[in-house]
Structure formats: structure tokens, C-alpha cells
Design a protein around this nucleic acid. Sequence first.
DNA 1: CGCATCACG
DNA 2: GACGTACGTGATGCGC
Length: 926
Amino acid sequence: MTDNVPFKHLYLVDGSGYIFRAFFGIPPMTRPDGTPVNAVFGFTNMLLKLRDDMEADGIAVIFDAGRSSFRMDIYEEYKSHRPEAPEDLIPQFALIREATDALNLPQIEMQGFEADDLIATYARQAKEKGIDVTIVSSDKDLMQLVEPGISMMDPMKNKIIGPDEVFEKFGVQPDKVVDVQALAGDSVDNVPGVPGIGIKTAAQLITEYGDLESLLERAGEIKQPKRREKLQDNAEMARISKQLVTLKQDVPVEVPLEGFATREPVAEVLRPFLEVNAFRSLLARMAKRLGDTPMEVADEAASEDGDPEYELVQDEEALVKWIADAKLKGTVAVDTETTSLDAMSANLVGISLSTGGNKACYIPLDHIAISESGDGGLDLLGGSADRPKQIPKARAIELLKPLLEDPSVLKIGQNIKYDMVIFAQNGISVSPVDDTMLLSYVLEGGMHGHGMDELAELHLDHTTIKFKEVAGTGKSQVTFDKVSLDKALDYAAEDALITYRLHAALKPRLVPEKMATVYETIERPLVKVLADMEQRGIKADRPFLHRLSNNFAQRLVDLQSEIHEIAGEPFTIGSPKQLGEVLFDKLGLPGGKKGKSGSYSTGADILEGLAAEGHTLPTKVLEWRQLSKLKSTYTDALQDQINSKTGRVHTSYAQAVASTGRLSSSDPNLQNIPVRTEEGRKIRDAFIAEDGYKLLSVDYSQVELRLVAEIAKEDALRQAFIDGQDIHAITAHQVFDTPIEGMDPMIRRQAKAINFGIIYGQSAFGLAASLGISRKDAKDYIDAYFGRFPGIKRYMEETKEFAHKYGYVKTLFGRHIHVPSINEKNPMRKNFGERAAINAPIQGTAADIIKRAMIRMPTALDNADLSAKMLLQVHDELIFEVPEAEVEATSEVVRSVMENACDPVLKLSIPLTADAGVGRSWGEAH
DNA sequence: CGCATCACG
DNA sequence: GACGTACGTGATGCGC
């Protein structure tokens, strides 16, 4: 456990509380468009003072997430009397969030918990680490937290609230405040308390009896008959009240304390915010920070259209200047140039930085100059290379490390996971980070790709220099270390500058477009988790793969002869064209042409049909294809993918590729390792644990079907899951009217196919094809299904309608998935869009859930003192490498984190369940 | 480089 | 009446 929190004094700002105080305490103000902004001004001003005058080095702004909280489960009436917010205050709620972002301060909220609980939790965490805490609020409900090391500050009066002030208010020391509140109640929050007892009496009673429980136990001793009676009659109400007023200090918060180190505001974000709201006094005060004198501000803004200034950094002096500038600005775009797209085998060649404006630099570190022979005379053995002037790599790393690890400097990257892995290889743990690729992904997922070239075109109307233009293409392509420094400068510096500008264009959109939560609580924290998994890799048994490969090879040779024998001539079995000609022309099997290529279709379904008619050739070909696939894609390719340094396989997870929010895996893809056939499953035995360790695999049971039931609010299905019943059997029972007892496995199989087909919006045609039944039967099944589960039908219709109207659909966690094809004229594409729209919320919510589990996993394991490492994710499954002695405990922690991954944001009406398996290999564990 | 095929959830 | 027909991925080999 690291206790390295980068600040000494943490200010926890009660954002929700402040806005009300400011609204009533500051005279009305409006900005030019008439929007009231008095509370926003007060808030912004207060935060600026906090960070500048108080020199606060740690600040977090905490908000209430919504109206509901766990307290309503305790007492339904809690806060039920709250009047609506005044009309002039309502538009200011969103602006306050913007202000927080503009000041580059973290804003924290969690569904199900009030701001007060989050404040209590963070205050406790900070105190445990020896950090002083000031709670910026005057809310009496927070006074229970005051203790040595934790104080409060009234932001309107600028007054410190310590134990004396709390005593003045409640008549007891802070640690007894909840007992007093429990007795006295609170009409504003609708906490009942005991009738007839106010703060004065409560304080007196608590002082006399010690605490609430003792008082209630000894209530009989009270002399005043009325008071005694009231206390005895309302003991339970008092206990409930105490629960209501006691703040939760162990909320499973997602943002760690370390994230609250104060960061400099980003001028490009703060300036427009202050301008739009016409906060002129603040603009003037911030002029320096926003880019020196106002005149220079104007100059800089103008120069962004001018030619970029790229600097080649070749000595320490120049590098130190850039580092100082980045530190001053608090934000820097970073990009690495390497020798490979595979981060685990790449060598760092250079680093580019940009701090905005029109400036960027490139720091070459490991370039090789191919000398143009003729002048020096040293160059004899053609192609001998020497190094151009560069800062020694180790020295540059040493200088950059403090900046890249500085919690008060935001590092921006485009696909920064890659750079994080590169830096990690060089001993640098980059933090905190923002990723323009992920910003684009959460804002415009499904609309287009999220590569830098595309984003630059789209948002900046700028055509980037292509990698091919500097490194060449095809056979003559060279690695980046062989690119000349002038070309490398133009290419690399541009990448950093574009990244900086993309950040300025995209980040401010998060809050107004309501994507801040998805970005901040899911995608951004996941980057580090994935980077760690990729670096860890999984051990692969090369000799085993080799033997398997030879075995497949032998059988392929035999099969090949048999196939050629039956065909009567040798041909390339792997060529669908040649195979089709052999099957349908030469042997005259029934079948037809298909597809634009004009060739016969020879897919597995066709061959299976032919095989069922008793033809031997298709059977042999199917077997050949299976083995050929296993050999080329798995047993052969995987051996080549074993990293020579680590002896392990390191996949790469793409976080911004799948439109639904899923991850994808490549190089190699470890999300499609065979499992469905016995032969294929053997490949899983090649993935093994280190000696003394086991592999643990935990997968969600039927997540997507559970989510369909949940999202569609389909009670019949929900009940089945709540009761833990066999969902496919239930479906069969409903659709075919078959008793569940002694059900024919074939019937259940059909129901299973229907269940999955539904998730994808399958038609009668598709179901008929996948079950090999008539279309009429398929249609009857589907009709019966919708008849029994009308909620599903309704969900499908409503989702299509929503997608047509808005062009996107949403997951339960608020992720937007754009489905542009839904409004196309071409009915085929439109239908395609509709099916995608139906599926996306389901697949996407499942993706959100497992991502949440993954983010929490390292901390959960650490807290349980377990050293297991998460290695792989396969959509609904997580794979860990676990010390043998910790298997049981780890299994429980992992399951619990996975099953509770929706907490506390979302309360599903059905449980999620996860099943664990353990083994020496992945095959055994599954 | 597009297409067909097939591996996974 | 025809058209097409289940969502989301990545890797491989063929053939142009």
C-alpha cells in the first residue's frame, strides 16, 4: 500500500450546500444572455480564493448525485418535504459543474450517497493518512465530523468552525452531535426525532446519560412524566433518526484521494468559461494565469491560427525549460515515438510535448542517423550509423520523470495507454492523465473512429502528416529511430500539438453533454487497469503449443490426401473458390452461386447441410477447416506472440473500438480463444499459471439476458432470475407450454436460441435458419414469445423509436451509443441500425458493469491483502493469476466485486451472479 | 486490399 | 412481391 498522497491539506468543498448559501447570500447577477449567475460567481470566486489565498494543495468539490440516497431505504420520508429550488437557481446547478471543470478541480458525486457521506468518507481517509482536512461548508450535518485534524470553514463568512463552534450550536462535543440530532430531529431534512425534544433538551439529556442508547435504556429514570413517555414511545424513531443523521464514512468511493492534488486551470478552458459568464473581475485577476498580460492573451489566441512553432530539443537546458513551462501551465500533451506498435516490445525513440498555444517540441532520444558517406571518412561498411546530437536517454528520463508523475500536472495523450506502457518500461508511472481518444469515444462513440488523424480532420479541420510520409511504406518502411530529425520533429511535435488542441476542443463538452460521469468513472480510470494487465501478460506453454501444432499438422496432411482422393484431383482446400468448383461443378452436389464475387458459398452452414445429406467430402472439409484454423490462428501464431523478454503473451486492449462500449483484444486476440469444441479447448490448456500459482476464471452468468429482463422490465423473466431458475427452461415453458419437469433438451435448446436471437433482434427467417425449422414455426415461436413477454416487445419498439429520434441509444450507466445508420433510406441499412440499436443498450450495459468491476478489482484485492493479479478480460469473464494459498479468498473477493459492480449507482431488481473456476491452466479453470 | 471464413462473447 | 435477414469483435488465407 502506498501512502504517498501528494498534498498536506485537503479541502473538501460541499458543492451542493454552497450553491444554496451563495444563491441567497449574494445579490442577484445576470450575464449578458440573462442567465442568473450569482451563485456561480460566488462559487468560482470562493474556489479561486481557496486555491490562491489559502494555497490549498488538495481540493475536491463534492456534489449530491440526485435526490435518492440509501437513507430513503431506511426512512421513506427522508428529505421528502424539500421545496423545489427557486427558478433562478435551477440553471446555475449545471454552471457550477462547469465552473468546477473550468478550474480543473475534481468533482465527485455518487448515486445513492449524499455529498455529506462522500465528504465524511474522504475526510476519514485523509485523516488516516495524516492529512489535515478542512470541510468547506457550514452545514450543521457535517459538524459531527469535527475532530483534531478535521475542521470546517464557513465559506460565506470565512469563519473556521471547530469544536467550540460545534458546542455552541449543539451543546455537546462533536462526537455526540449525532445523538443530539437523533433526539431533536430536523424539520428541514424531515428527520423525525422525538417530539417535544429540541436541541437544548437533547444536549442536556445526552450530557447526563452519555449517549443515545444509554438514554433510551434508562429512559424510565427520567423524572418529567411527559418527557419520559415521549422517549419511551419514540425510542425506535430516535434510533432510525440516528441512522439518518450519521454520515457514512466508508462509501466505496471510486476516485482515490491522490486525485485531489491541486492542478493549474487550463487557460483554454477557464478563459472561455469566465468570458461566457462575464466574470470580468475574475478575468482580470486571472490574467497572468491565463497567459500573461491581456495583450499577450490576445496575441496568443491569434497566433493559434499562425504557423506552429516546433522546437527540436537536443540539450538539457532546452528540456528543462519545457518541463518548467509544463509545470507552470499544469497541463501538457505528451506523445512517444517508438520502434513498434506493440508497446511491450517497442523501444522508446523520442518524446514530444506541447503546452498549448502553437508550440510543441520533440525530444529525440534514440535516433540513429544513417550518415551520408563521403565527408567524414569514418563511414566505410555501408550503412554504418552514428547518433545525432541527443540528450542521453537515461538523463532525459530522469528529468522528465518528476513532471510525468507530478499529480498536479495533467498529462494529455491520444491513446495514452500506449504511452503509459512505454513509460512504465522506462520506470515512469504517468499520472494523472486525460485521453483525447477516450473523450471522443464517450462523446461520439459509434459515429466514427477515434484515431488522431480522423479527429484532427473532424475537429480542427487539419490534415496531419501521415506516418507513412515520414517512415516510408511497404518494404522500404523504416522504424522511427531511422527517421531524420527534421522530419521526426515535424511529425512528432505535430502529434503533441494536435493532441493538446483536441483536448481543448473535447474536454469542455463532457459536462454539457452529460458524458462526464461515463468518462470520469469508467473510461478514464480503466486506462491504468488495462495498462497493468497488458504489461502483466499471461504465461503460455510453448512446448505444448508446439506439440499441438505438430499433431494438427499430421492430421491435416492425412485429411488433405483423403479430400484430394475423394475429389479425384489435388486442389487448394483453403480456397473457397476452388472448393466450390470441386463440390458443385465437379461432384455436382446441390447448391448455388452466391455473393458478388460470383463464387459458390461454402460456409460451414452450407457444408453442414451437405454433410447431413450423407456426403463425405463436406464432412472432411469441415474437419480440415477446423484444424487448419486452430493451427494457423492459434497454435502457430501464439508461439510467435510469446514475448522473448517475459516469456508471456501480452495482448493489447482497444478501449475505443467497439461501438457498444466493449473492449476488443488484439495482437494476439485473447478474447476468441476456442472453447466450443473439444479440439479447440485444448488451446486453452496452453495458457498456464506460474509455478506456485493458479489461474482463476470468474464469469457472469447470463448477464445480457438478465439485463434484457431488467431494462425491459419484464416481470416474468425478472422473477425467474430472482428465483434462480433455469432461464431457458422457463422460456420453453412459456413459449411451448411444456412442463419444466423432465423437459426435452432439444426443446430447451430451441428456447435458448430464441432467447439469444431476441437480444439481437432476430427475424423469423434468422431463427428458422439457426434452428433448422420452417419459417412458419419460427414465426409462431417468436409471436408466442412476445405474447408471453410483452415487456420485451415494448422495449424493442421504444428503443427503435428513441434511436430514430436522437440517433443514439443509452446504457443504464448513461453511455451514449450512436447508431447513425438508423436514419438511412436504404431499408437494409436502416434495419441493420434498428437491430444494432436494440442490442447496444444490453451489450453496452454489460460492458459498463464489467469495466466497473475491473476498476475496483485492484483496490479490492489490495484491501483484502491478496496479491492476485488480473490478467485478462473476455467480455463477461475475468482471469486472474493467484498464489495457490490465496485461491479461496481471492475467488470470494472477485465474485463479490463482480456481483456488486453496479453499486451504488444502480440498484438492479435482479441479482447478478458470477461463477468461479480454478486450475493450472485456463482450460482447467474455465 | 477486399472477401470469405471462423474463433469468441 | 422482392429484398434481406442476429449484435459486437479480430486473424487468417486466398486471389486479384
